[in-house]
Design a binder for these strands. Structure first.
Length: 416
RNA sequence: GGAGAGUUGGCUGAGUGGUCGAAAGCGCCUCCCUGCUAAGGAGGUAACUGGGUAACUGGUUCGAGGGUUCGAAUCCCUCACUCUCCGCCA
């Protein structure tokens, strides 16, 4: 959520900023809503003030045994007017809130301008692509079974067997250990979250169709960002403790509404996938530097896994709803002959903090909104694909396991 | 699942219809005294928010929401959460 004061004081600039990410701010509507709000609020508070005074008087009359009927008539009138006005005010406030919740974050000044993903900028490529290898993970191993998953659950699920299941488990351990080494505290969190938590990170109310909702009103988390960020909802942190770094391994559940027909084969796009999430609460002055640090934490995993990848910076038009700046890490996938997203590292500035009421006390003991940043470190399913496809030697019929992972996997290759 | 107790300011905790945004204590801040330290004394100290260039001034908030009443921290209803005991389980 944006600061309503920004809209009041500087709406023309905000409109231009939001234009960059393809959001058209209805300036007229806001001005109308807010001026109505102002009028009504002053009116309501005036009525309240009058009632307060008269009620006090009423009490005095009553206790001295005087007649109160005249006064009661006046109070009743005021109460009537008050009720009308405050009902109107409630409606305006509700509309205003809906209006605000719908507005995405403002792109950061360093965010490159652009319309869609074709305008994203490749920052740097790492490692070298082996063009010999182009086989798809599903054709390499039969230990990833989507047919079985379809029987058990439906499309867009997968069953991992034997070495594949173990490989994923090894990756989880490696990634968590690296995160801990980098100063993140490990958490185990609920895989379901309530409405407030999802509204706090910006997932609701706008993107409900992307989520799975349970019969009693909870949602399956689409990312550990939800529980991790909400650890801090409604709390105030001492500035000395910033940044706070947390991590968790969780499954993620996404309905993938609107992606019918896209990436239907294999592990690429699933209703359920595993992910290690890195999340930080930062000082506003530090959050951009901290984002670079978080990006490095994610890159470190890919370096350790010896996988070729590139870092891209999303242009303003491709930015997620809550983000003001995002780097994507894309890993080389031989089966698709292209780079695919394996981590997305974003700075949300105070956007989530305002929705979630995450504050910190600064040097002068003043409470201010903190900044939140997060990114994957990494998405497990896609890491698995990259590892299988990049490391598969079709002559020797084996998948080699990178050195850093061997102590977690116990073997240095998988026989096919 | 059954029974009971609770939820008040930074903290502890009083408050059963108006004089209560709220006693007292702790903590914190300012000042005084004291040649260190310890102790003592005086005063101050909730958050959010509206209007106003400002001085200033208004409103809301005692777990959440609704109700009764001229008036609610206080009475009634619903819900959430916490704790204790019993039962059941991983």
């Amino acid at each position: 959520m944006l600061d309503i004061k920004l809209l009041r004081d500087d709406i023309d600039r905000i409109k231009i900023e939001l234009e960059k990410r393809g959001y058209s701010l209805d300036v007229k509507k806001f001005k109308l809503l807010d001026s109505d709000r102002k009028l009504l609020q002053v009116k309501v508070e005036d009525f309240q003030s009058q009632r307060k005074k008269l009620s006090e008087e009423f009490g005095k009359l009553k206790s001295s045994g005087d007649d109160t009927t005249n006064l009661k008539v006046r109070i009743d009138e005021i109460n009537n007017d008050l009720k009308k006005a405050s009902n109107e005010l409630d409606k305006i406030l509700e509309s205003l809130n809906i209006f605000l919740l719908d507005i995405p974050n403002i792109p950061h000044s360093t965010c490159p301008e652009g319309v869609d993903e074709t305008d994203n900028i490749v920052i740097k490529k790492y490692g070298s692509v082996n063009s010999e290898r182009k086989e798809d993970h599903l054709s390499i191993t039969n230990e990833i079974d989507t047919d079985m998953a379809t029987k058990i659950a439906g499309p867009r699920f997968a069953v991992l067997k034997g070495d594949m299941a173990k490989l994923q488990r090894a990756l989880i351990s490696l990634m968590l250990d690296i995160a801990i080494k980098n100063g993140y505290q490990e958490y185990y969190v609920p895989f379901m979250a309530n409405k407030d938590s999802l509204t706090g990170v910006g997932q609701l109310p706008k993107f409900e169709e992307d989520l799975f909702k349970t019969t009693d009103g909870l949602y399956l988390i689409p990312t550990a960002e939800v529980p991790l960020t909400n650890i801090f909802r409604g709390t105030t942190i001492n500035h000395n403790d910033l940044p706070i770094k947390v991590t968790a391994h969780t499954p993620c559940f996404r309905s993938e509404a609107g992606s019918y027909g896209r990436d239907t084969k294999g592990l690429i796009r699933q209703h359920q996938f595993e992910k290690i999430e890195l999340m930080q609460v930062c000082h506003p002055n530090q959050s951009m530097d901290d984002l670079e640090g978080l990006l490095n934490n994610a890159k470190e995993i890919l370096d350790l896994l010896e996988l070729p990848y590139q870092v891209i910076e999303l242009c303003s038009g491709d930015l997620g709803f809550s983000s003001c700046k995002t780097y994507d890490i894309e890993v080389w996938m031989p089966g698709q002959n292209k780079y695919r997203e394996i981590s997305s590292c974003s700075n949300f500035s105070d956007f989530q903090a305002r929705r979630s009421n995450i504050k910190f006390k600064d040097e002068n003991n003043k409470k201010m909104l903190a900044h939140t940043i997060n990114g994957s470190g990494l998405a497990l399913g896609r890491t698995l694909i990259a590892l299988i496809e990049n490391n598969y030697d079709s002559d020797k019929k084996l998948i080699s396991i990178p050195k850093a992972l061997q102590k977690y996997f116990d073997k240095d290759y998988i026989n096919i």
